[in-house]
Amino acid sequence: MRIQIDHATTYAYDRAARFIIQRLRLTPRSSEAQQVRNWSVETDVDARLRRSEDAFGNIVHTLYTEQPTQGLTVRVTGEVITSDTGGVVPPDQETLSPLVFLRDTPLTRPEKLISVFASEFSAHPPLDRMHRLMAAIHGSVAFEVGVTTPTHTAGEVLALGRGVCQDHAHVFIACARQTGVPARYVSGHLLRRDTEDQEAAHAWAEAWIEGLGWVGFDPANGVCPTDRYVRVATGLDYLGAAPVRGASYGGGGESLAVRLSVRDADVQQRQQQA
């Protein structure tokens, strides 16, 4: 598929910030399953953008503003041509061993509830176990915006029974690791059937299955990723793959707004031609 992405993140300040630094993980990397085209990163104020790559293979832009700033919008746009790989991520040059993804993080630590929940599936072989886990999380954690924050741990989310896609991913990752399967967090985009305009980017998880490699699981939707998914960044948890992590100096009253549209470029083209 040809997926068009337009993603804008706006920070506004009641009192101008003297200086802002942000690390952005907003740019997808090309791979066998997704080709990135005409990608651009733009800001609406004077700022330096330095591109680098982190140990997880993510493209990271570090942004430094050059003048006092009342509002800052970072807008990324581009097109990604995707193919369906049945959820399997084509092998890439990985710096990190899958074993690294057995580590706990504060957000995915193996709390009691996680161990109990995960233990139900331990008897099944890994791939089957992950599918069952995904279905169980999809059934146990209802999708609901506004009940959790980015600091909720996997165990807290499971106890609450409600959350957003990043919470589903954290529960999946914590449970998978608990059963000895390496798992990682993926931030990215999903081409939805119902709407083009979205409130936030998507997130799901990947598990390392011996013989197959990394396999995607989207427990928020209860399916494995298809060609409607665009992978942007991976990490041990949300914090490692967060679209923006930043700090401002001297700014007061910070607020954040996100505008995102993910659309099917071919459909759009057909409509325009018609």
Binding site: D54, A55, L96
Partner: peptide
């Protein structure tokens, strides 16, 4: 054992390749 190092809380994945 690789696991002892790579899952060690003091191993820092961000430094891999640095």
């Amino acid at each position: 054992p690789a696991e002892l190092v790579l899952t060690n809380p003091h191993y820092c994945p961000e430094m891999q390749g640095q």
